[in-house]
Amino acid sequence: MAHPALLGDGLAAVLVAVGAYCVARLAAGAPTGRGSHDAVNLGRALMALAMVGVLVPGWKILPRPVWAVVSAGVALWFFGRAFQLATRSRSRSPLGPFGMLARRDAVHGVMALSMVYMESVRPLPGRAGAAMAAAGDPVVALALMVVLLVSAVWQLNAADQLVALAHAPVGRPAPPPSRQAPRPPARSRSRPAPRLEVACHVAMCVVMAYMLALMV
């Protein structure tokens, strides 16, 4: 790999920031009561750490096989969660919120799968910075890259709607007026800084797509 060190270092810095932010969200917001949301933060933090190790070989804190196993576990969890949500949203529009959550988890599964791919393929001998392996199948790398970039675009497009939903009060809608009884006001359990969350996702997707492009 012959990419400039400055580029690798800069992208690693972005990932460190994303990882630190996700850890801070976990620490500040725990327990949110939303398992999926916490898992997203944990998954992102782990993947950011693994990606930094790929971009800057000196910062690799665990061997490649260990990262591959960790990433495979993360991928399995997210795909399982996506399947669960997709089943729940079957009766609703696939473009609706449940469908979107299922896709979000599926995309995190794809991100983890990309990490498995990057950590598993054999590095090409004689290439500088051999941590970026290039012995894989370019079709696989390109397919993963396209999924990630489409996800970044889709998420960014929906950012404002996600912000609105993040601040929505939690609770069931009011029953019909005839049966309406006094009920406590809806709780406002807003998700902190939803725009930053979208920015983290976009940054992760773009940097990971870049890393996959290096393997083509």
């Binding site: 919120p97 449940f98 359990r189």
Partner: peptide, 10 residues
């Protein structure tokens, strides 16, 4: 109600 349920799971 979808939005409300969404907040519970998301």
């Amino acid at each position: 109600e979808t939005s409300a349920e969404l907040m519970e799971v998301g």
